[in-house]
Write a protein that binds this DNA or RNA. Structure first.
Lengths: 238, 238
DNA sequence: TTGCGCTATGTGACTTTGTCACTGAGAGAC
DNA sequence: GTCTCTCAGTGACAAAGTCACATAGCGCAA
């Protein structure tokens, strides 16, 4: 049950030489007013964090808003019951504003952000963030769009957790995690956290998929044999 | 299963005489700069909606941001499966920014807002909202605090739906809905929507509570006999 | 190579929750 | 009264979660 915690690495914020072009990598930011860009570039610090670093978590409010340049951050909830569930991922080109904002406002939240890969991000101080929101209407759009996306995603998760069958959700998640490839490196335990369910449930469901020859299982990996079938099952949720 | 839909009343936005003091009723707004207040008061319109009005819903993006002056709005999700779940409520002194923002960004969302009582609200046009965010740092705080609150609430709901036992959740909800009084006017169907579960599940659980003499049931109402016991059970979630 | 220890996975019995297809009971309308 | 709604109760069953183990793969050290 109790998942193994990633070791708390305490965010070794390694400042690096300024990559003057990072702003351009954000679709929402590249259209900013030139002087706003200038501000971001001169005052934002580029930081890196190693894989498995806990970027934020209970009792660890971040000082800065992060804009992810490279890598992905997994945000997951740890329940008092010891259960875990993945809420969403932040990918390169997205920002943590939402989570960060929450953390700043409520420190009794229970979500944590973990670097799934080595991560490079631009850190923007709170004060400067506020400044940017005030000055730039495109920045406001960027921020509110990010909020909106996250919130609709959360709505979706609630819907899935509450009302979707586990076989449908698992099929969906397998296709998603495969990202077009045909093997997935993940333990049943990891998948159970993705869906907020029990490891045994995943094991049994995967066995059923294997029995139908949709997948082939081996220790730590899942090979997809019939993507179509999985997608067909998953479609009942979209 | 299929819950009865409230009739679509299409938001009869009844403009009323300007109540010049409404801004003061918002804890977060009363400390605004005088000129910001002035702007809100002169440009915001006061609107009223009758109980059961659908304030927003699928295919009905609101033009304006609403600040609730009186009454409460229930926001709930309607799943494709026909299931429903209450996500949160907006009370007097709170704003719909979050939901509104979502609706503006993604119109394929599936949440709807329903007036639980007659509702009075101040409507602020989108453009003006943006303006206020730009000008006033206290307004920004107000908005971001609202977002943060909602998001942490959503995190909580996910946790509950995924990991909490139904008896614990029901006990919790009963105490919450009682608001200190000792009788609740609600059908089992309504309670099942509150928790995103099935009516039968609620019925059975309530019967169990009645068997223990914690509550007394009658058509459409629940009388709480042993609030302490309910709270004791509910505490296992907080 | 063998055995050790760790982690991943398999399994059966059981509980809880959700589903389905009904039945019956109040309560207002006529 | 009787009709017609909505609300609540019920039993059989399916799906999902829990618990307590058993077993299996794999790296590694003796």
């Amino acid at each position: 049950m109790r998942a193994v915690k990633a070791p708390r690495v305490d965010c070794p914020v390694t400042a690096k030489a300024l990559d003057s072009e990072w702003v351009e990598r954000f679709p929402g930011l590249s259209r900013l007013e030139p002087e706003t860009k200038e501000l971001l570039l001169t005052r934002g610090k580029i930081v890196t964090m190693p894989q498995k670093a806990v970027i934020f978590g209970p009792g660890n409010s971040p000082e800065n808003m992060l804009f992810l340049l490279d890598g992905t951050v997994r945000v997951q909830q740890v329940s008092e019951t010891g259960h875990e569930i993945v809420l969403y991922r932040i990918n390169a080109g997205e920002s943590c504003v939402l989570t960060t904002a929450c953390l700043l406002a409520y420190d009794d939240y229970s979500a944590e952000g973990i670097a799934e890969t080595d991560v490079q991000a631009a850190a923007v101080p709170r004060q400067m963030f506020d400044d940017l929101v005030a000055r730039s209407s495109s920045f406001r759009n960027f921020v509110f769009a990010a909020f909106s996306k996250r919130i609709t995603d959360l709505f979706l998760i609630i819907d899935e957790v509450a009302f979707q069958r586990i076989d449908v959700r698992l099929a969906h998640k397998l296709v998603e995690l495969a990202k077009g490839r045909d093997t997935i490196s993940a333990t049943h335990q990891m998948l159970s956290v993705e869906l907020g369910t029990a490891r045994e449930v995943i094991s049994r469901q995967l066995q059923e998929f294997q029995r139908r020859k949709w997948v082939e299982l081996s220790r730590g990996t899942i090979k997809i044999l019939e993507r179509n079938k999985l997608e067909g099952l998953a479609k009942r949720s979209d």
